[in-house]
Amino acid sequence: MEITITGVNAITYPSLHIWNWTVSVYLFCGGLAAGLLIMSAIANLRAGPANPEDRVDTVRAALLAPFVLMFGMFFIWLDLERHFNTYWFFLSFEPAAPMSWGGWGLGLGLPLSLAYALSNVSQEHRQWLRFDFLKELAAWLNPYLKPLAKIVFALGIFIGIYTGVLLSVLVARPLWNTPVLPIHCLVSALATGAAVIILIATRGSTQLFFTKINLWLITTDLILMVFDFLGHLTSGASHRESILPFFTYTSQYFVFGVAFVLIALLFPLALVSMLLCVKEGNKGELSGATRFRMKLSAVMVLAAAFIIRLAWVYAGQLTKLS
């Protein structure tokens, strides 16, 4: 017999609304900071004794990362219902709770990323630091640049994966509950980090280098997204239904359909644009138009990454086991 549910009483049925856009901003900023830290750390660890002018873009990324992290942490703090109880995160450690790992990871990671940022400031650029104690701290930290780079590399990997684990451990929300999500978030974090370096870089060669990196990252991102959807499609009924918001253009789900179309447009557009830029860049001198197109592609990557997080946070809450 075919069973159809024709009615559910609305009086006492819960309408779930857990997290809103502030969590999306947190996940986006956390990923972006992770990407900046990883990219900057790799650059520092692989580089030999370089001319300070050659390192300027790496230094910018390192300086930006802690502020992006702080911005994201501010938004997750805003999302807490009891702001003044935040200290409880640091009075306990719950090994099974990803949010506890995140609280400690970010709590320790923020000062570490600040120390790493300061260690990047070379003697030639220390006059830009406003306060004397910062100049002294930067001078003291500078010899520890490489050890700190190793630490923030691990920290970046941790934060990048954590932004996905936070959602993927929740069995109750089938859209989030997939092992692909943490890897997807890490790759997306690296792509956004590279995108921001393209935007803030002063040198065309840096932009071209990170555009090449982003080509691979965006391709991986797209493949992971397809696998994510396929994993849900070939799984149980709850998982199959969990991806419906992205493909059902009803009034309830329309916004998710639009988000999916935007993601499906922005990533391939960025990919093609980057490919063309790399082709032109490989020929020789980078023109102003090519550099502009690289920046535009980077903006598209950032926009798509934010839309993904926004859509996933909201759509995941509509899904449940059945």
Binding site: I18, W19, E81, R82, N85, W88, L170, A172, R173
Partner: peptide, 13 residues
Amino acid sequence: RCVGCKACIAACP
């Protein structure tokens, strides 16, 4: 001790 992070709400099936 509750900070109102809503992780429990998200986790409850």
